[in-house]
Simulated assay, not measured.
Amino acid sequence: MKKTFKKIGIILGSIGVFSIFTYNLPVSVKVAEAIAAAVFKFKLPPPPPNRGIAGNRVGGASRISSKDPTNEGTNSDRHLTALVPEYRNSVGSEITKVWGLTTNEYPTLYFYIPYTKKSISHIDFIIADGDNLEHRTVYRDVILSPKYPGIINFSLPQTSAPLKIDKLYQWELKLTMNRQLDKEISVKGWIQRSGLNSDSIDSTGGRLAQRIKQESPNRQAAFYAENGFWYDALATLAELRIQRPKDLAIIEDWNNILKSVNLGKLANKPFVKSGY
């Protein structure tokens, strides 16, 4: 299987960005394998050299009641975690950059929340304009905690201002705990919209953004992973993982993309919804 992935990865790399939609895979090669190949060789673009984009993708563990079911997990399971790449300027550096690219003007972000509803008062989700010194809020929502620990997603609604091309935006997910010593726990990072807008034209003369939407989720995931659009690749694979929970190929793709940014330990966590 791994040899197959490597061969497909070489093929995808050689044919370039746009021809992934016109290249016909051999009948014996499943689209899911092409996705896995792309994810297996997933290469993240370096973060912008902006000193102001430091963040933290892991929030400290809360000291909760011994009667709370959350205590049944391991120590590594009891940290709020953003499913986003992190970078360090150099070995041993204390400055961490939490950042990724999206093509979507209304992107979806994913987080692992390790606490039960009983432990959390509420959750704040914020996206702010990072180019503004005062970080003007683009979107803010206060939501209920899910009933059980798991992976939750937050999407920028279409009623809010869309993300603009090439602008940096900061996001924050903050948990306010119930009757705990560690009252608030948060993770912060950055997102940048880039590349594909409605005017992008592919090599065949078509509108690239429109063509991507017409492709199957499998091929969309392969494209995003191959071209470094972290938030889009993750969101597409997450939807496939939810829709096809027993598909071994999709499970492997999901595991691979999280392992690529050292979050493999969260690959088997369930998906949960707020307020449930």
Score class of each variant (00 low, 15 high):
residue 1 M to G: 13
residue 1 M to E: 13
residue 1 M to N: 11
residue 4 T to M: 10
residue 4 T to V: 11
residue 8 I to G: 03
residue 10 I to S: 09
residue 14 S to Q: 15
residue 16 G to Q: 06
residue 19 S to W: 11
residue 23 Y to Q: 08
residue 24 N to V: 13
residue 25 L to H: 10
residue 27 V to F: 14
residue 33 E to S: 14
residue 35 I to Q: 04
residue 35 I to E: 01
residue 38 A to K: 03
residue 38 A to V: 08
residue 39 V to I: 10
residue 39 V to Q: 04
residue 41 K to D: 13
residue 41 K to H: 14
residue 46 P to M: 12
residue 48 P to W: 11
residue 52 G to M: 05
residue 54 A to Q: 12
residue 57 R to M: 04
residue 62 S to N: 12
residue 69 P to R: 03
residue 73 G to V: 00
residue 74 T to S: 10
residue 75 N to E: 12
residue 77 D to E: 10
residue 80 L to R: 04
residue 83 L to E: 02
residue 85 P to E: 02
residue 88 R to W: 14
residue 92 G to H: 06
residue 98 V to Q: 00
residue 98 V to R: 00
residue 102 T to A: 00
residue 109 L to I: 07
residue 116 T to K: 04
residue 128 A to Q: 11
residue 130 G to F: 05
residue 131 D to T: 13
residue 132 N to A: 09
residue 135 H to D: 13
residue 138 V to R: 15
residue 143 I to Q: 14
residue 147 K to Y: 12
residue 147 K to V: 10
residue 148 Y to C: 09
residue 149 P to Q: 06
residue 150 G to W: 03
residue 150 G to H: 04
residue 151 I to E: 00
residue 154 F to I: 12
residue 155 S to P: 09
residue 159 T to Q: 11
residue 166 D to P: 01
residue 168 L to H: 02
residue 169 Y to V: 05
residue 170 Q to Y: 09
residue 174 K to L: 06
residue 177 M to L: 07
residue 178 N to E: 10
residue 182 D to E: 10
residue 184 E to V: 03
residue 185 I to L: 02
residue 191 I to V: 02
residue 192 Q to I: 01
residue 193 R to Y: 01
residue 197 N to W: 06
residue 197 N to D: 10
residue 204 T to N: 15
residue 207 R to L: 13
residue 211 R to W: 07
residue 214 Q to G: 06
residue 217 P to M: 08
residue 219 R to Y: 08
residue 221 A to Y: 01
residue 226 E to H: 14
residue 226 E to D: 14
residue 227 N to M: 07
residue 228 G to W: 00
residue 231 Y to I: 05
residue 233 A to P: 05
residue 234 L to E: 00
residue 240 L to E: 11
residue 240 L to H: 03
residue 243 Q to L: 12
residue 244 R to H: 09
residue 247 D to C: 11
residue 248 L to P: 12
residue 252 E to C: 11
residue 254 W to I: 13
residue 254 W to P: 10
residue 265 K to E: 13
residue 269 K to D: 13
residue 270 P to M: 06
residue 270 P to A: 06
